[in-house]
Design a binder for these strands. Structure first.
Lengths: 113, 113
DNA sequence: TTAAATACATTAGTTTCTTATGTATCTTTG
DNA sequence: CAAAGATACATAAGAAACTAATGTATTTAA
């Protein structure tokens, strides 16, 4: 089962920031795979969604980049800037709060898989 | 504090369906107020978002409507159809599942490594 | 009597995604 | 060893789902 795409909307940026906070330094493709692995394939970030998001984070000064050559192929690493670290905390705690509110609103008690 | 609008994206339909499931019959303005009340003003549904959503639910056969006059003013009530009730269960349990996954994702550091 | 609240609705514009396409390299497998 | 699949970046057209603004009209409270 893959979550309907509308659910992912609005959480992608937070997911990316959190992964960077936990892993210091990651490249785009790695992020897509990590999310896929950690969520048992339930969340699959497409490249068309990820790269524009990464570029936006960079434009906002939340991440810095460094390119590295692996053989002849380039790999672009992303690292959180100080303001990116703050932003991550904000976004993560906002999402946590939001989920509590949603849980209450939807009267969700336990997971029903 | 009001949640950033991007967070609401994708959950609005589920919220509306769930409210209708719990209250049998509601009108648009009532829904905006109920959500505002229940979430202590943290979620404020705008009319520009709500009405198109309600119209879409109706177009999809998930709700039926009946208009009522209160004085000279019309009030449009929405009620879940049988397929709307099923859809509500699906959407709510999908969202519950999604929130479990997100909780795990946002808490990676303490759970893995 | 007038501002705020109630109650519906639409529309232009924005954001953020999907889907498709493009380029290129590296690795695995029949 | 050729071909398929995986790795790795990127962009672009179009769609979805909002926001913010605007519009109409009635009812209630100050």
């Amino acid at each position: 089962m893959i979550y309907s795409s509308e659910l992912i909307k609005g959480t992608l940026k937070t997911i990316v920031l959190k992964l960077l906070a936990d892993n210091k330094k990651m490249y785009g493709y790695e992020i897509t795979q990590k999310v896929k692995d950690l969520t048992l394939n339930k969340i699959q970030i497409t490249e068309g969604a990820l790269y524009p998001t990464l570029h936006a984070l960079e434009a906002d000064g939340l991440v810095t980049t460094e390119s590295e050559f692996i053989g002849k192929r380039v790999r672009k690493y992303y690292t959180l800037s100080p303001s990116g670290k703050n932003k991550t905390k904000e976004k993560v705690s906002e999402l946590a709060d939001f989920m509590e509110t949603m849980k209450f609103l939807l009267d969700i008690k336990t997971k029903t898989v």
